[in-house]
Simulated scan of single mutants.
Amino acid sequence: MTALLLLHTSPVHVPVFDALRDRNHPGAVLRHLVAPELLDRARAAGPESVAPALRALLAEAGANAGAEAGAGFGAVLVTCSTIGATAESLAPALGVPVLRVDRPMAAAAVRAGTRIAVLATVESTLAPTRELLAEEAGERPVSIRTHLVAGAWERFEAGDTAGYLARVAEAVGAVTDADVIVLAQASMAGAADLVTGTVPVLSSPAPGLAAGLAASLATRSAP
């Protein structure tokens, strides 16, 4: 059965997406590839700097999958928002769809209102997310404000997931004058469950996984 390949820059995402698969897409086949060095490089030298390593990594994954009967993948879902745009640009060379996990979330955000607040816990994610929202908005006028959640990423790196999500939820509660709040990184998704306000809070894993599986199925069904 053709699988969806998920590229992560942290191993914490693997059980998150497996749980979403089990809940919303039972029977779907996911393959996980974890490469934390890509985010380290992107934060140090910019997202474009990871293109050669990312291309080689995905090409190797495709070659390895092709060597195993029935183990190929029909699409790639990149769960790191910082390198998402760079990854999308590699699709023609790889010959399969390459999707960034946050694009469906961005599309939903620009439909939800004109005042969009973006929260991120690493600064390198802010510009790519702003650019993605502007791309999805097209001619629609939107106001995009970005917020870096101070002190959160250090907790994530220390393995303090509860503290990380609590800090993100606190930052969400401090946002005013927004029609919709975007959690820019997949790792932030759990904070949405801790928020009690009335402003919609969007995260990327669930809609991103649905889009990735749809793309993989379309590839498998193509003649």
Rank of each mutant, 00 (worst) to 15 (best):
L90C: 14
L90K: 10
L90N: 04
L90Q: 14
A91G: 07
A91I: 06
A91W: 14
P92M: 09
P92I: 13
P92Q: 07
A93D: 15
A93I: 04
A93N: 13
A93C: 13
A93R: 11
L94N: 01
L94P: 03
L94V: 11
L94W: 12
L94D: 04
G95P: 14
G95E: 10
G95H: 15
G95N: 15
V96M: 08
P97L: 05
P97K: 13
V98D: 00
L99E: 05
L99H: 08
R100T: 05
R100Y: 05
R100N: 07
R100A: 10
R100G: 06
R100Q: 09
V101F: 06
V101S: 11
V101D: 07
V101Y: 12
V101C: 09
D102N: 06
D102M: 10
D102S: 11
D102G: 06
D102I: 03
D102F: 05
R103F: 10
R103N: 11
R103Q: 12
P104M: 04
P104T: 01
M105L: 10
M105R: 01
M105C: 08
M105P: 08
M105V: 02
M105Y: 07
A106W: 01
A106I: 03
A106G: 10
A107M: 13
A108P: 11
A108F: 13
A108T: 10
A109R: 03
A109I: 03
A109D: 06
A109G: 06
A109Y: 08
V110H: 00
V110Y: 00
V110C: 01
R111Q: 13
G113H: 04
G113A: 02
G113C: 07
G113R: 07
G113P: 12
T114F: 04
T114R: 15
T114D: 14
T114P: 05
T114W: 11
R115M: 04
R115Y: 09
R115K: 15
R115P: 02
I116P: 14
I116V: 13
A117E: 04
A117R: 05
A117S: 08
V118N: 02
V118E: 07
L119G: 00
L119E: 02
L119R: 02
L119N: 06
A120D: 03
A120E: 02
A120C: 02
